[in-house]
């Protein structure tokens, strides 16, 4: 609170206000006025027509995860387990194996993120030494019909592209 606190004067003590019904009707009139205005012209509404109109997501927004790739299409992840170690929700499960695409020597065989367990804290992104995991897909609402559909596998994580250019992402949005 502090210096900015504004002390409101308590109303409701006068005779008319204590009659109650008069004030009720005055309030109803305000509601009816708003209803009529919006009913005749809804372009000035204060709500977004979601999902037809999607919100603008800044580049720093921590959305659904993805695994990034090198220019040649090989995955950047080397299965170092830093994200799994750092994850406070313990929602990342990795299984490592020998690398088969010619880069270094280790890669994930399985890489699973359970989005129902994830708390979207972004620690995995911070921990990654290879910039292999990012939360820049711009996907902020994940929907599914069953629990299993929220468990993201390696292919799904690799398939999602980033929603921003490299410059936007590095700059961290406007």
């Amino acid at each position: 609170m502090g210096a900015k606190a504004k002390i409101m004067e308590r109303t409701g003590k006068s005779f008319y206000e204590r009659l109650y019904l008069i004030e009720i009707f005055k309030g109803m009139a305000v509601t009816l006025g708003h209803f009529m205005t919006n009913f005749l012209d809804n372009s000035k509404l204060y709500v977004r027509h979601y999902p037809e109109v999607q919100p603008e997501i800044p580049a720093r927004w921590r959305g659904r995860h993805r695994l990034t790739k090198h220019e040649d299409g090989t995955m950047k992840c080397v299965a170092c387990f830093m994200c799994q170690t750092n994850c406070p929700a313990k929602c990342i499960m990795i299984e490592a194996g020998e690398r088969i695409d010619g880069r270094s020597e280790k890669m994930p065989v399985r890489f699973t993120i359970d989005l129902l367990e994830c708390i979207y804290c972004g620690y995995c992104v911070e921990a990654c030494p290879m910039d292999a995991i990012r939360m820049d897909t711009g996907i902020f609402a994940v929907t599914g019909a069953d629990r299993q559909s929220f468990v993201m596998g390696l292919t799904a994580l690799l398939a999602t592209p980033g929603a921003y250019t490299e410059e936007e992402y590095k700059k961290g949005g406007v």
Binding site: V78, M82, P129
Partner: peptide, 9 residues
């Protein structure tokens, strides 16, 4: 310094 892929890490 390939600690991410090194088993000894």
């Amino acid at each position: 310094i390939d600690c991410p892929v090194c088993d000894q890490a």
